[in-house]
Amino acid sequence: MLVVLKAKLKDILNTLAEEYKVLVPAKIEDTSKFISYKDNVDIILDENVKLSPKDVFFPQTEKMYKMKTVKTSMELENITDEAGKKLLFGVRSCDMKSLDCFDQVFLTKGYIDEFYKNKRDSVVTIALSCSQPMQTCFCSAMGVDSQKAVGADVQAYDLGDKIGLEAISDEGSKVIELIKGQLTEEGAEVPQPGEFYLKVDADGVSEKLNGMFESPIWDDVSKKCLNCGACTYVCPTCHCFDISQEVRGENVTKYRCWDSCMFGEYTQMAGGHNPRPTKKERVRNRFMHKLNYFPDRYNMLLCTGCGRCINVCPVNLDITSVIKQIKEAE
C-alpha cells in the first residue's frame, strides 16, 4: 500500500492544493467542520467533524437565480457556480454514505437537481477509515463499513502514525498520480476498527415500522423533543430545503436553504391547515423518513450512524434508543 507519515500529510495536501481547492476536516471556532485547506489549519484526524460535509454539496443557503422586477416586467438571471475542482480530504464512511443518499434524492426519480449535480461533479473525495469509533458512532448498525467507504475516489486508511492510500476510481488514480513521489510503498495491514460503544441492532426496523404509524411509541418518543432543528442541521443525510427570496427593491435573489421537519411552519399551508401540527407528528415523520419512508422509496436507510444527532440533541433524544423502542414495540 502507498503510505505517508501523518506528520508529512500537509506536504501532500500542499501538492494537491495546486490542482484542487482542497477541503479538510479541521477545528475552527470551537467546533469542527470541513474548511479550505491552508498551511495553518488545525486538521483533525482522530475523530469526525462535528458539522457534516453536506454543506459542500448542499450549502445551508444557496443562491439559485436572480430576478429583476420593474413594474410588471420580470427578468431572470442565472447565477453560475464557482468553477474549479474541489478535493474533499478525510471524509468518513458515514458521510460518504450520506452522499449516496443525497445522490438518490437529488439525481433520481425523474428530475435532476442541477445545483447539487454541479457541486457533486466537481468534488473528488478521499475517504478516511476510522480506527476508533467515537462514543456516539453506530455506523456498522446502519450497514456502513467504517473501513471502506462507498463512492470514494480514494480510500485512505488510518494506520496509526501513517496514512495508507488506495485509488478507487479513475479520478482517484489521478489524485494518487499527483502525489506519488511523496508516498512510499509499504506492506501495511488495515487495522481492525475498535469496538462500538453503542450496541444497536437495526435489523428489520424498516419492515417493522410498516405497521407502526399509529403506534403509541410516538407519543412517548416525542414528549421530550423541543422541536429545534439541531438534529436535522447536523445530520449528513437530512436534505429538506425551503425556497425563498431576498428582495432588495427591484432586485430579487431567489435562494434555497436548509429547512427542518421539526419546525411547525415546515408543513403549514397558506389556508392555515397543518397536517403535522404537533411534535408527535413531526418527530414521527423524522424517524419514519429515516427508517421507513426513505428505505421504501430508495431502498436504503436515511441514517448512516454518524451519531451527530445524539451529540447535539439538547434533551438526549437518542435515535439508537428509538430504534430499540421500535424493535421492542408490540
Binding site: 458539522l51 423541543l226 422541536n227 432543528g229 439541531a230 442541521y233 411552519e265 447535539v312 434533551v315
Partner: peptide, 26 residues
C-alpha cells in the same frame, strides 16, 4: 457566522414561551 439557526437555544429557554415566535412567522 457559525450559528446554524437550529433554534435549540430558543426552544430550550423557559423565558422563550411565546405561543408563536416572531422567527416562525416567515
Amino acid at each position: 457566522e457559525k450559528c446554524l439557526r437550529c433554534y435549540a437555544c430558543r426552544n430550550v429557554c423557559p423565558a422563550c414561551n411565546c405561543k408563536e415566535c416572531i422567527f416562525d412567522q416567515t
